[in-house]
Design a protein around this nucleic acid. Structure first.
Lengths: 152, 152
DNA sequence: AATGATTCCGCATAAATATGCGCATATATC
DNA sequence: GATATATGCGCATATTTATGCGGAATCATT
């Protein structure tokens, strides 16, 4: 078995596709997802695959190399679209944006995969960002400030 | 203890600085490095710190968010400077570059933090890249091809 | 087709990481 | 200053990830 088997290449490609759709929390979950797609592999193989693929692990789970920092960068790019930022209780951050930009901002926040962010919804000029608690919220504000090079 | 303690902030800043210098292989090694700098903390705390900092883990260890994908991108930017690429045994890859560009290329390869790369040295127009074995070397060539959008 | 060289991958397990819990401590409110 | 509330962090441990080893499979050479 001197050469990379067809199966191996296919499986890795499948993993790449899975990760592109959404980050994987654990290797185990990837194993399960692979099974659904008709691949049989153990956690061991997935561990090795991830290393070869060059995947990284951040707070959001395993992701492809590009996707990781992409979030921060993407957020930086929409920094100008942010208008205001204020907390509504310890679990909700309300972000005002230029009209029509909320979706983009929400998407960028999603991709950051920051641990403080539980989830986002973007309307027209407002984004609601759910946070896990007061500390997380404070942190998040700092982090947004850093990423956008602005102070709030 | 409602607020982040001074110690915690300092410690996290120290971790950031450490990671900026070089990636950390394990959390344990970070604990040790912190001790040298006068911080006392357990692996548990470092685990939580890394999450808060937003650090990511790739094949090279823990790194700051930006630094991760930066390598691949940096390599893509110097793609034009590559002239030739050939293996010398299973553990050495010899990369010819434009005159004077070898250092930059070697640096970019370093930052990729790819598992196949054991180490790099850049001369004037030649880079020596040590690989862990034949398979790794083949992989590396593929990967360089992908990153530089060229075939070798 | 036998031999050898190489790679894949599962198993078992070592190694590393994440987390529930509880105490200590800090802040807020009264 | 007493009480209530919230946070930091260590300990112990559950969970997750990495890896040494060996058997099976593939290919090259003779």
């Amino acid at each position: 078995m001197p050469n990379s088997s067809e199966t191996q290449l296919d499986r890795r490609e499948a993993i790449r596709q899975l990760l592109q759709k959404r980050p994987a929390a654990t290797q185990r979950s990837l194993v399960d997802a692979l099974v659904e797609r008709g691949f049989v592999a153990t956690q061991s193989s997935v561990s090795r695959d991830l290393r070869e693929i060059g995947a990284i692990k951040n707070a959001g789970g395993y992701a492809l190399p590009g996707a990781a920092a992409a979030g921060d960068e993407e957020l930086a790019q929409v920094a100008d679209l942010l208008v205001d930022l204020k907390a509504a209780g310890p679990n909700l951050l309300v972000i005002r944006t230029e009209t029509g930009a909320a979706q983009r901002v929400a998407l960028a926040l999603d991709r950051c995969q920051w641990p403080e962010i539980v989830g986002n919804v973007g309307g027209d000029d407002t984004v609601f960002t759910a946070t896990s608690g007061a500390a997380a919220q404070r942190n998040l504000i700092t982090r947004i400030g850093r990423a956008t090079s602005r102070h709030w």
